[in-house]
Design a binder for these strands. Sequence first.
RNA 1: GGCGAGGUAGCUCAGUUGGUUAGAGCACAGGACUCAUAAGCCUGGGGUCGGCGGUUCGACUCCGCCCCUCGCUACCA
Length: 511
Amino acid sequence: MKNKKFYITTPIYYPSGQPHMGHAYSSIIADVIARFKRNDNYDVHFLTGTDEHGLKIQKAASKAGLKPLEYCNKISDIFRQLNVKLNLSNDDFIRTTEKRHFNSVQHLWKQLVDSGDIYLSKYKGWYSVSDEAYYNSDEIVEKNGKKISTFSGSLVEWVEEESFFFKLSAWEDKLLEFYEKNKKFIIPVSRRNEVINFVKSGLKDLSISRTSFTWGIKVPNNEKHVIYVWLDALTNYLSALNYPNLNNDLYKKFWPASLHVIGKDILRFHAIYWPAFLLAANIEPPVKIFSHGWILSGEEKMSKSKGNILNPLEIIDIYGIDETRYYLMKEVSHGSDGNISLKSLENCINSDLANNYGNLCQRVFSFIKNNCANNVEAYKDKLDSDQKIINETKNIIGELRNLMEEQNINSYIKSVINISFLTNKYINDEEPWKLKSSNVKRMNNILHLALEQIAKISILLNPIIPISTSKVLDALNVKKSNRNLSFLDGENILSEKISIAPLNILFKKIT
RNA sequence: GGCGAGGUAGCUCAGUUGGUUAGAGCACAGGACUCAUAAGCCUGGGGUCGGCGGUUCGACUCCGCCCCUCGCUACCA
């Protein structure tokens, strides 16, 4: 029985615009980790979804001549389609407009009222109607007798609005203590330091309701107020496990969340508000938050004629989903921003996928088809060169769990591709084509070992490029139940006699 | 302004507690081979490791100053 469990989430996306590469990137990271954990015999629950409340949505809907929910149905569906296109293996898709989420948020609210962490007061500030945003007094200048925002230059007015507040200020010390006790709560470390410094500089209470619009979840016992943004949005992670039903199987099994994958732009809300809410409600905070960087595009970005460069749907249509996933995961360094371009994408596909892994599979499968009638038999005797590559591969595999544990996917990929280098070199050095007539036994041994290497690489790359690696593992007749990490612990993972099925070219080169 | 991260080959990055000729992948140039998607393998060019100064027998690695880039500095998400 599986006793290891892993609950992983993406942010819930705010669908006020079209999905872009950043959405795709967050989701693919989470999917890669989810798939890896499943392959490592974890019981995984992988959640994604959409955040559908707020004034922006309400306005966009009325502009489109639709009721808010009708509008949300449409746009949420666009994100669902993206998930299919990205080949996500999510177990659930949550929408903040669902009943289970309403119940969950309202219950959490009541918990916070009961604990004394919510009070009614007035939210005051300089508000810009056109920006739909409040500004601090130091962001305001007076020009011709009128107050304007230094940021946008738009007119602001002093607004006082009745609002419920969360006593965030009361949680400073407890949060700092929590960060101290949970050194890996925020990854990477540079982000963790930012958060800690921010909390140390002092926290203000947080406005958590609005009366200026209606599209949202009502405050319990106060129909005037709608619960505002974060208390609504973040709670999705609980709602999907059927909170507040604490005896529900999903909740009992998967809370606290193992990992929230987010972009650095929403770090504060996840790293400060979220644990504060949960601690206040006496709920255990999540284990870890991984804050990744942004996907940037080079000089091409500004070009309107090439403005679609960042559109993930088009990239996937042109280059393929495995290719796109591989590129994004390989190219962007752990935790930092990544620059992407069509040129480096094509380069990456050609060198890593087509020339290296793809061609490795092709050369071995073709050779076996042409010289062994698709059947390979291994003989016991191993040479030093065989043992050498087996050991080197084992050493590399030994470090992979740690890399994935640190969400260091790009280093993980480089290590796995390294096995492909080793294997190509092994075949070159052993020259099986010279043994066709002179030493068929040795030739078979070489080919058998090459196939084992291919099987290992394919299992290890499976979380990143699931479609292509499945083709290879199918052709190798590796049982589905064996496509996991513990299977790789053995030295001889394939049976001694192997029949392979034909394998088509996996990745076309881009010329 | 304050706090923080970083500046290493054309590009993306590794460099453990300071120790001999500074590494990888991609890109580029040669070579031998031929099973393979003219792929793979081998060899090579190319770096005053941001600048200046200091500590040391010895610094990419420690210290000081300077230059440059980036992030955070709360209620759009």
